[in-house]
């Protein structure tokens, strides 16, 4: 079982541009405008971070964004309102930590959260700290509500852990291009090629993330065979600069939109030199 909107993105054939922002960063209204700007800039899927106070996979760029959003009053309930208020074409994937999924609603466990996310219009979930023993209940709840469950594969993921993810993933797999926490880097790691090769026999699209910040990076990643690119910190940096300098919402939104275009265009360029470009 998987989500039709996400399937349609990858069936269309172009590489998917998947931007990430923390919902509510730096405040609710600005964030709505920023996410909508990414949609205009060519986002195929949007990953929306639902902030949790103890994120353990994030670099300082996204940790700071999480703090800004929480301080502006973001909560799971507000997040679902936010999703409802967004006017975007792209399907939305919620990225958050297991505690919020587990604690949501009346009963402990993932069911209430998944039901609420689906009714709010979320198409998929990414839970970086989801442990193996909690994956099956979450997978079952996602199946019931047609949500995709995206797993992050690290360069060091292998053996039993890799198989377990392969058996449970749907929508797309998030390929972590290098070790470390999230954060934009000037180099794009060679580990990408190797990571993609390891996942060659998976039957879901492969989206590569961690460290992509320019159109050239996007081009390079897609030409290495990625079906999509995930970009977070490079966009969050733009939001952070806007917040720090107290810039008008429109100016920041314009910069996000043009960054999104740069990345989308780069990804499309990469397709022409991709290994299976002629098939």
């Amino acid at each position: 079982m998987s989500n039709d909107a996400i399937d349609a993105v990858f069936e269309a054939g172009d590489p998917a541009f998947i931007p990430y922002l923390v919902a509510g960063d730096p405040d609710y209204e600005s964030s709505l405008a920023y996410v909508e700007a990414l949609d205009r800039g060519g986002a195929d899927i949007i990953e929306l971070g639902l902030p949790f106070s103890e994120p353990i996979a994030e670099g300082s760029t996204i940790q700071d964004a999480i703090v800004r959003s929480l301080e502006a009053g973001m909560t799971p309930e507000r997040f679902f309102d936010f999703v409802g208020d967004l006017d975007v074409e792209a399907p939305l994937v919620c990225m958050t930590y297991y505690n919020l999924v587990y604690q949501y609603g009346q009963q402990r466990g993932p069911r209430d959260f998944v039901e609420r996310a689906a009714s709010a219009g979320i198409s998929g979930l990414v839970i970086p700290d989801l442990p193996a023993e909690e994956a099956d209940p979450l997978r079952a709840a996602c199946d019931e509500h047609d949500l995709d469950l995206v797993f992050i594969v690290a360069p060091t993921t292998e053996g039993e852990r890799l198989t377990r993810m392969m058996d449970r993933v749907s929508g797309y797999v998030y390929v972590q291009a290098r070790l470390g926490t999230t954060g934009a880097r000037d180099d794009v790691s060679d580990q990408t090629d190797e990571s993609l090769a390891r996942l060659a026999d998976w039957d879901v699209p492969k989206a590569v993330g961690f460290g992509i910040k320019t159109g050239e990076h996007a081009e390079r990643i897609v030409s290495a065979g990625a079906d999509g690119i995930i970009v977070g910190s490079a966009l969050v940096d733009i939001v952070a600069a806007g917040a720090a300098n107290d810039e008008p919402i429109e100016a920041v939104a314009d910069r996000l939109e043009s960054k999104a275009r740069e990345l989308t265009d780069g990804a499309v360029r990469g397709l022409t030199s991709a290994p299976d470009a002629d098939t």
């Binding site: 353990i56 989801l130 442990p131 909690e134 992050i152 060091t156 993810m165 070790l179």
Partner: peptide, 12 residues
């Protein structure tokens, strides 16, 4: 208890 961490931390 358990090991509720991103997969990149599992190997270490």
């Amino acid at each position: 208890g358990g090991r509720h961490v991103p997969d990149a931390l599992k190997a270490p």
